[in-house]
């Protein structure tokens, strides 16, 4: 009974995650490589799969892997936002639109062109070969752990970043109005 209580108290707090990610460099590395592999493979699937529904579901897996990497980085609030906002809102919006448009098979079959594919992948490889040597030079000094809990993020958001936070509401209002005005059916035409 005591162990069960203890277990629940560990799971209930974010100490659970910190316990896992600080219990040794090997454990952290294992989780990092696992989630990174899932993220990259699922992203490749999202880009390469032919059916939009399949790419969307593959992107969903990739988003969850990114959220797991956020947890690994002790950014708990951002991880929750990632799951709620991306997986819960944005991808469902995509799903609605894809099902609403109901594209036929002939439309889907001409989405890929051979020369474009070769050129695109070539440009991507060039970009990667430029980025990776530069990024490998970054060496950050180990910083003290500042977990991104809701308390910490909220305190920062409502003091130092209060004005940008309020301006965000204006942006969202403009987006709502724009989406409704664009997508509604004209009555008179």
């Amino acid at each position: 009974m005591w162990t069960i209580n203890k277990m629940f108290s560990i799971i209930g707090s974010h100490n659970f995650v910190i316990f896992f990610t600080t219990s040794g460099p090997h454990v952290e590395a294992c989780f990092f490589y696992l989630f990174t592999t899932v993220m990259l493979v699922a992203a490749i699937g999202a880009v390469a799969l032919r059916s939009p529904i399949y790419s969307l579901l593959s992107l969903l897996v990739s988003m969850f892997a990114v959220a797991a990497l956020f947890v690994l980085l002790h950014a708990f609030f951002v991880a929750a936002l990632q799951v709620l906002l991306y997986a819960g809102a944005i991808l469902v919006l995509f799903l609605f639109v894809i099902m609403l448009l109901n594209l036929n098979q002939q439309e889907l079959s001409r989405t890929r062109q051979h020369t474009l594919l070769v050129l695109g992948v070539g440009a991507g490889l060039v970009l990667l070969s430029v980025l990776v040597p530069i990024l490998r030079l970054t060496a950050a000094a180990p910083a003290p752990d500042t977990p991104g809990t809701i308390t910490a993020i909220g305190r920062l958001l409502f003091t130092q970043y209060l004005l940008p936070f309020e301006v965000t509401s204006l942006l969202l209002l403009a987006a709502i109005v724009g989406a409704v005005v664009l997508a509604k059916r004209r009555i008179d035409t």
Partner: peptide, 13 residues
């Protein structure tokens, strides 16, 4: 991940 998204931008129509 950025490069994968970039390749997707360029190749998909």
């Amino acid at each position: 991940l950025f490069v994968i998204g970039f390749v997707g931008m360029v190749t998909r129509r």
